[in-house]
Design a protein around this nucleic acid. Structure first.
Lengths: 249, 249
DNA sequence: CAGTGGTCTAGACCACCAA
DNA sequence: TGGTGGTCTAGACCACTGC
């Protein structure tokens, strides 16, 4: 019978998380300097930092270089799929996970181009070949300055001739309107979700530490003939988002 | 114009990931010992380990103490919500994310008890108070030995008097059958998804490293009168699962 | 300018694995 | 029994913050 000896840094991380939940450290407050914390827990600095890195991974702490470690408390946004049933749903207020719907996002970094290439899985799912042209629209969204979401939308160029509808002011509904005008209105969608380590590019775009996971959602829209017309890739900060789907069983 | 000086360990992690994708290291193969890798990349051992820890977080590598680091390649399982539309969906084969549906899960660690307490968010979402009794069914699922999913199902005790239907052989359909027999068949469901750091308990139950995120899905089922009748909490290894939802727009 | 976090180093000990 | 990964230590340098 060997006892399971929990590593010090996991124990300390749990204690710290507890201390924050118990209100020993309040939201926005700065933690004591790392050497001091290390001493307090009777451990070396490197071990202390390993514990702190876990809390920075899930957004409990925010480390500011040269300044300190701050308690962060971000109620996540709620991203709703399956909007058709939203109104028939009984208790939109009674949820398991907490979230905040009242805040609204700011949009920046919107681009729209016509490319002759896209990631292989995207092309396959759109039924395109390697040399087909796609319309690519990228945009980033912020919440009170902090970037939380990065969106890439792919549409076969044969479906949408002009990029004029994709620019910033046309917004997210621009593509759907254009597809509808082209007689290819989306009527069905599939979303595939995975949770993974961010690329270095995503780290800087979303300003998340490299050990924080991101949520990647791929929404493929189909027209009435069940042909794919659009793929929207959304990469979210996992600390800032909760996903929500309503469906009939 | 300050250049963005990428930390060594991120660069090395990216190089290693590239080397694995390029087939320099094959699936199941053991990597060179860590001191050797450190020397090869001209870096200290601790820095090398920081890079390796990133690849172990997302399941690219599996570290076996006393043995070595092994390249892992696990095609994720696909967890489908919104099953009602599954058949009307056009291209079940054309997906953006890769997955493997052919494998089937093994069940173990099934328990069923009547408790007089549950996590506060669960009780709230079920419309119960702190002292109400709930029926709790827990089960764990393995894929070729490796645990991938941990499920807790909560039902108000007033809805289901007996635990007999909850045991292993009754399976997942036992609860639904019992609810249907009680005239409270679920007709609508909401799933809330979040992605977070695992608890130490979840680390051991799912045998994931503490820096690997887990996917937590909370499915609340409602009867025809839109009353909540059941909450199923599923905690998944984020490296082993892809979520999939189909809905009309 | 002093204080802070982010990174990196060069060791060490232990538990575990395989031969 | 020798090699391996997991953890821990006690330093160091740098970039950045805020005064």
């Amino acid at each position: 019978m060997t006892e399971a000896p929990e590593p010090r840094y996991l124990d300390i991380a749990a204690r710290l998380r507890q201390a924050i939940e118990n209100g020993r450290y309040h939201t926005g407050e700065r933690l004591p300097p790392e050497p001091e914390l290390a001493k307090e827990h009777g451990v070396a600095l490197m071990t202390m930092r390993k514990a702190l890195n876990l809390l920075k991974a899930d957004g409990t702490l925010l480390g500011r270089k040269g300044s300190g470690n701050y308690v962060q408390s971000i109620p996540p946004l709620r991203r709703r799929g399956a909007t058709r049933l939203r109104l028939t749903q009984p208790d939109n207020t009674m949820t398991v996970l907490a979230s905040d719907d009242t805040r609204s996002l700011e949009t920046d970094h919107v681009t729209a181009t016509v490319q002759t290439g896209a990631p292989a899985p995207i092309l396959r799912a759109l039924g395109l070949s390697e040399h087909d042209e796609v319309l690519l629209r990228t945009s980033r969204y912020r919440l009170t300055g902090r970037p939380v979401k990065y969106v890439r939308t792919y549409v076969p160029h044969t479906l949408l001739a002009s990029t004029s509808l994709l620019h910033s002011d046309a917004g997210d509904d621009g593509i759907r309107a254009a597809l509808t005008a082209a007689g290819r209105a989306p009527v069905l969608a599939r979303e595939e979700i995975c949770c993974r380590i961010p690329t270095t590019e995503e780290c800087s775009h979303l300003s998340v530490p490299p050990n924080r996971f991101v949520i990647a959602a791929y929404r493929t829209s189909f027209d009435a003939d069940h042909r794919p017309v659009e793929i929207e890739e959304t990469v979210m900060d996992s600390a800032s988002y909760v996903l929500d789907y309503v469906y009939e069983v």
